[in-house]
């Protein structure tokens, strides 16, 4: 766009070729560590430290992967991560969408002030909330339970904000047309606004899911039992127990990386658009 040479119709030019080469080199830089991870995860423990000199495991050991499941409750960690992130995503999208509807499509006294309050809390760093929330969850008896992992994250001022912005782009005349057609608020919400806000809902769902799948601090302080551990915590524990068995650690962390990659590849269009709409958390 910015270089006249690239704007020309010629399919090949030296600057273009150099640019492409730069892209390939950068691409290699970003993928090489993952390729290396694959190689380590397939290597035997005795060969790992020599891998930089052999470049390929002399003996391939795919059994490292089932080994991970035998050493620790890896399947359980996977389940916990999906269970928690799944519920959080579902609940957060529902509560945020409903609140966003109230903030964007119903006119009521104090609306903008309450919304401003929501916005103001977005400035408070998560760490500030971590300590009192821990005390509250402790007080509610949700320490070391799924409830404690799910309930505090089931609502989000940020998600409400995101969906409100999205809903504001839907013309109000649609609600009015629906009201004249005979729809009440719940029907307008479910049959008109929600279908039209679908891209926004998907964006929020992706971000919530990925964020919770990677969530670390909260589950770290909130869970004690091994069978409540989500993947990041499970991996950390795995590393501190079996840290010397690099192939197993790499196999485990590689498996943990698969779901986000799948989500991204399938829903890339929404994710990119979401980020560019400003859907990035600090």
């Amino acid at each position: 766009m910015s270089d006249p040479a690239t704007r020309s119709r010629r399919s090949f030019s030296v600057p273009r070729a150099l640019g492409f080469a730069a892209l390939v080199v950068l691409g290699a830089t970003f993928t090489a560590p993952f390729l290396w991870q694959v190689l380590i995860s397939l290597s035997s423990l005795t060969d790992v430290d020599l891998l930089t000199r052999t470049g390929f495991p002399p003996v391939l050991k795919p059994e490292n992967y089932p080994q991970v499941f035998r050493k620790v409750e890896f399947a359980r960690y996977f389940f916990n991560s999906f269970f928690v992130a799944g519920w959080v995503t579902l609940l957060q999208v529902i509560t945020s969408a409903m609140a966003a509807y109230a903030f964007s499509r119903i006119r009521w006294p104090m609306r903008d002030r309450v919304f401003l309050l929501y916005l103001a809390t977005l400035m408070i760093p998560g760490v500030v909330l971590m300590v009192p929330n821990f005390a509250i969850v402790l007080g509610l008896g949700m320490f070391n339970t799924y409830w404690g992992l799910i309930v505090p994250a089931a609502f989000s001022a940020y998600g409400t904000f995101l969906l409100r912005q999205f809903m504001l782009t839907i013309p109000t005349s649609l609600d009015e047309a629906a009201a004249i057609d005979g729809a009440g608020h719940w029907r307008v919400f479910t049959q008109v606004v929600l279908p039209l806000a679908r891209p926004g809902l998907i964006v929020l769902a992706i971000f919530t899911f990925l964020g919770n799948y990677n969530s670390f601090f909260w589950p770290l302080i909130l869970t004690k039992d091994d069978n409540l551990r989500v993947l990041p915590i499970g991996l950390l524990a795995f590393d501190s127990t079996y840290g010397r068995e690099t192939p197993l650690i790499m196999a485990g962390s590689l498996m943990a990386m698969v779901p986000p990659v799948l989500v991204f590849v399938v829903l890339q269009k929404y994710l990119v658009k979401g980020i560019q709409l400003g859907a990035v958390k600090g």
Partner: peptide, 14 residues
């Protein structure tokens, strides 16, 4: 409409 979110907001944020 606001209720579920507001409860969460009051208990876990505000």
């Amino acid at each position: 409409f606001l209720l579920p979110s507001l409860v969460g907001f009051l208990v876990f944020t505000a």
